[in-house]
Design a protein around this nucleic acid. Sequence first.
DNA 1: CTGATCATTATGTCTATACATAACCAGCTG
DNA 2: CAGCTGGTTATGTATAGACATAATGATCAG
Lengths: 239, 239
Amino acid sequence: MPSGAAPLHRQIRAAIEAKILSGEWLPGTRIPNETELAATYGCARMTVNKALSELAADGLIERRRKSGSVVRQPVLQSAVLEIHDIRAEVETIGLSYRFEILKRQARQASRADCARLQIEEPVPVLALTCLHCAAERPFCLEDRLISLAAVPNAKNEAFAALAPGAWLIGEVPWSTAEHRISAVSAGPDASLLQRPLGSACLAVERRTWNAEQPVTHVRLIYPGDAHALVARFTPSKAG
Amino acid sequence: MPSGAAPLHRQIRAAIEAKILSGEWLPGTRIPNETELAATYGCARMTVNKALSELAADGLIERRRKSGSVVRQPVLQSAVLEIHDIRAEVETIGLSYRFEILKRQARQASRADCARLQIEEPVPVLALTCLHCAAERPFCLEDRLISLAAVPNAKNEAFAALAPGAWLIGEVPWSTAEHRISAVSAGPDASLLQRPLGSACLAVERRTWNAEQPVTHVRLIYPGDAHALVARFTPSKAG
DNA sequence: CTGATCATTATGTCTATACATAACCAGCTG
DNA sequence: CAGCTGGTTATGTATAGACATAATGATCAG
């Protein structure tokens, strides 16, 4: 446990959010009114109001006067970037696949590590650097941080047969992922990828949570001239 | 005017937002503290607090105890891979938007054009180059090809009010889209984006179909150092 | 100069209260 | 029955006051 408990309105918010995300309160469900919730949590109505206002601002519920608050139909989001398996990615294009762990270090999370996992308090982490090769040529450089609090088994895993990403998929479920895609000029990593210094690379960062617990953060660097992310999709019926 | 005035805390919020967006309060500026603002607007501190809390939740300001609230450096990020409207993208982060058609040509599809639209037989097409600016600075360079077979009205459209992307959304539905994201070193386009030659840029290509008919192909170039695509999602219940 | 301590200050959280407003409902009236 | 009217209810907005907490800066001991 960190230093102190979360603020009350955040606890209430989290409790309601949990019921919605778990499916206990399905879309369309009318949730208890502010006065009832205040009684339930033993607090003032204003405190509940703050929690519900935040949920409404984040689009989880919809509020109407008199009729009360209802759980909203979730917004259709394009699940474009799947948690991808680099081996599959490489073999799909018909090349041989190989990976190599270049660095491995278990440590207490540094300040930078905390930022990567978006946590406040340091936890034990495992830092890995891994090179993925296609047809014996560098394909992608992986820099990963795994929270050992979320995945204790990682500490004793050698990653001999399965690459970290593939191993993790089998080990822990995930509930939320955030992707960030940007273009960078290759720095020192350029030599590992056998590219000239300063060449354009695609950086894909992914942060994964299981429930509210951070699981892993990974940064994948792909040589830009050799790679592209492709996503194809069809929208579901919209209103 | 609608029915009545906006709530006080929203007025305050809007006033502060305006100062930030207009550039009067640049990133890093410390804004007056809650008590001062309460005096300025003649209201209770709680009301100002609500306004500032919302601004903080939306990422416009950053709040720290004791040191006060400061205007945040805006993070440019786009919701990934929606059929995105660049105007909305720019205005979301609070900058003024403007676009400019740099080139416009109607022609019979060349061999390269056919490849871009993934068609075999040449059709009449409209080729456009368009520069999107945020706060009067280049934000994104658009290179678009529209199939006049699919969208005959495009031929006589001036794209004065609406940018080609926004206009198309209203003109034709789409059923499938394919995205391709890659990193490139800026070539001759670099000067249009006011970036040094060879700097890393993010290239987003999108191809759109209506039923089986190709509609458009667009290539968007974003300066890499100023932009990232972010996607956050939660998978639907998985087995 | 270094480090510990403490007062100050601005925000964070919470409460109790008040009145406003929108929506729904029921009952009245023509 | 249609349509108006007013009551009830739940949320929306705003306030003043209280205490908590974090960061800063100044003071003081070693």
